[in-house]
């Protein structure tokens, strides 16, 4: 079987896209910690549930950013591959 240059680039781009999504581990841990702390805070002070909720969601959305960088890399590799034209 002949492996063309383009085929090789496609194969490794797919592998790279999958590898880039390992970035999802960090935000997962971070959001879990934030949600746990939020639950503990509501348990201690149920009256402040609204404030805790909005602060927690804001923090989680910011923590998500690093995972989204990985997602953007994966999407670029899959749908707008800059390497493909180089061969």
């Amino acid at each position: 079987m002949n492996i063309t240059d383009q085929g090789l680039i496609l194969a490794f781009s797919a592998l790279g896209a999958g590898t880039a999504m390992i970035a999802g581990v960090g935000p997962g841990i971070g959001q879990g910690v934030a949600a746990g702390q939020g639950a503990a805070a509501v348990g201690r002070n149920p009256g402040a549930k609204g404030d805790i909720m909005s602060t927690m969601l804001l923090g989680q959305a910011v923590a998500e950013t690093t995972g989204l960088y990985g997602l953007v890399i994966a999407l670029i590799l899959l749908f707008a591959n800059p390497l493909y034209g180089k061969v």
Binding site: A61, V62, E64, T65, L71, V72, L75
Partner: peptide, 16 residues
């Protein structure tokens, strides 16, 4: 850059 990528990444992920 981080603000724009955050919004773009979230909505693009949903659209994809």
């Amino acid at each position: 850059i981080s603000m724009s990528l955050r919004l773009f990444g979230n909505i693009m992920a949903g659209t994809t």
